[in-house]
Every structure is written in structure tokens, then in C-alpha cells.
Computed example of a mutant assay.
Amino acid sequence: MVALLNSVPAAAQTWLSGVKLRRSPQQAIQVDTQSFNQVWLRIPVDLLLLPEGTSARMVEICLTWLQLADLVEALDQFCSDSQTLPTLTPTFSSLPRRAIAPAVPLRQQLTPLGIGAASLAVMAALFFHMPVPQRRPEDPELNQPPPTTAPSPLLPEANPPTPAGN
């Protein structure tokens, strides 16, 4: 029963999450996916109560994904009942963060960094070969204030002066 609790939920978690789990050699029951809707449970004969005349080393059971989900649910209910087997505790654990593949591949993450570094290097090389601007001496004529003239009236006069001989 413990071998079933260790292998079946891990296989279901692999199928649901898409993250391949490392198989540990101590798991006696193997769960393998063959095709889209086919899961094989391989159980060693020594774990089953079979008659002595059985010559097979492994018993193979073919399940669909729906049957595997029902098996996981039955195991979960079995473990949640504390009066059935009080010493039996499930060994479910969450996946470590390093086991989960990133959503964006590393190549796509590093592409903008590479383009930015390359453009920075090109611009630095261009600016390195540009001449340094020379400071021009100050022109004394440009620094003199403009000549001042008498201010012209902004408004025209109402009565312009008339010439004296008319």
C-alpha cells in the first residue's frame, strides 16, 4: 500500500503539471504513460498476494487517465480516514522550485540582454573614434552689448506737429 501511495500520486502530479519527476529506485510500483490515454501500472508479484504457481515477475495493469484520477482520489480518501490505518501517512510533497521549467526559455530571456550589450559596445566604439570638440576662443565683438538708441514711442502721437509755413 505504501508503494502505491508513493508512486501513483507522483505520476498523476507529473501528468498534471507537465514536469518530469526523477524516479527513485526504491519505488516498487512503476507508473508509465505509453500513449495519450494509456497508463501502465507495473506491480512486482512479491507485493501482491498471488498463488505460489505464478511465474510472472510483474503484473501490468492498463489504465486510462480517468481511471488513474479515480485511483488517486481513492488513495487520498483512504489516507484522510484516520481510523482505517492510523499509522499510514501520505508522503505527498510539493515540487521544488528548480524542478519547474521556466515559462520563457533561457535563450529568449537572454536575447534582449545580448542585443543591449552589443549596441552599447557599438555606440562606445563610435563615440571613441569621434574627435573631441575644441573650444573656440571667445570673440570680443560677440560679448559687447548692442548700441543703445533713443527709445521710439510705442504709440503714435495724436496730433502730429504741422510744418510752420502752411
Rank of each mutant, 00 (worst) to 15 (best):
M123R: 05
S82H: 15
Q134H: 03
A164P: 14
P163H: 07
T84N: 04
P96K: 15
Q77M: 14
T162F: 08
P151I: 08
N37D: 13
Q134N: 04
P146G: 00
W65I: 03
D76P: 01
A103D: 06
Q77N: 12
Q108G: 01
R135W: 03
M130A: 14
K20P: 01
D76M: 11
S17K: 07
E60G: 14
P147E: 08
Q26A: 11
L154F: 14
M58S: 11
T33E: 03
Q83E: 10
A150D: 12
R57Q: 07
P44V: 00
F127L: 13
S17I: 04
A12V: 04
L16R: 12
V8Q: 01
A121W: 04
L48D: 07
R107H: 14
E157S: 05
Q27L: 14
D76L: 10
L106Q: 08
L155Y: 15
D46E: 15
A124V: 04
Q13M: 12
S17N: 05
P133T: 07
Q34H: 09
R57F: 06
N37Y: 10
L106S: 10
D139N: 14
G53W: 13
W15K: 03
L71K: 00
L106N: 09
K20S: 06
S93F: 05
P102R: 10
L66V: 15
Q144S: 10
P153F: 13
Q27D: 08
I43Q: 01
Q109V: 14
S152V: 07
S152D: 04
N166Y: 10
P151E: 10
R97Y: 09
Q83D: 13
P96M: 14
V132D: 07
E52Q: 11
H129L: 11
M130R: 12
L66P: 00
E52L: 13
E60C: 12
K20Y: 08
G114I: 09
L120R: 15
L49E: 08
P112S: 11
L47H: 02
D70G: 01
V45M: 12
N37I: 09
W15V: 01
S35I: 03
L85E: 08
P51A: 03
A103K: 09
Q108Y: 04
N143T: 03
G18M: 12
H129G: 07
A56M: 12
T111Y: 15
G116I: 05
Q13C: 06
A3R: 10
V31Q: 00
Q109E: 10
S93D: 12
P105R: 11
V45D: 08
P147V: 14
L113K: 14
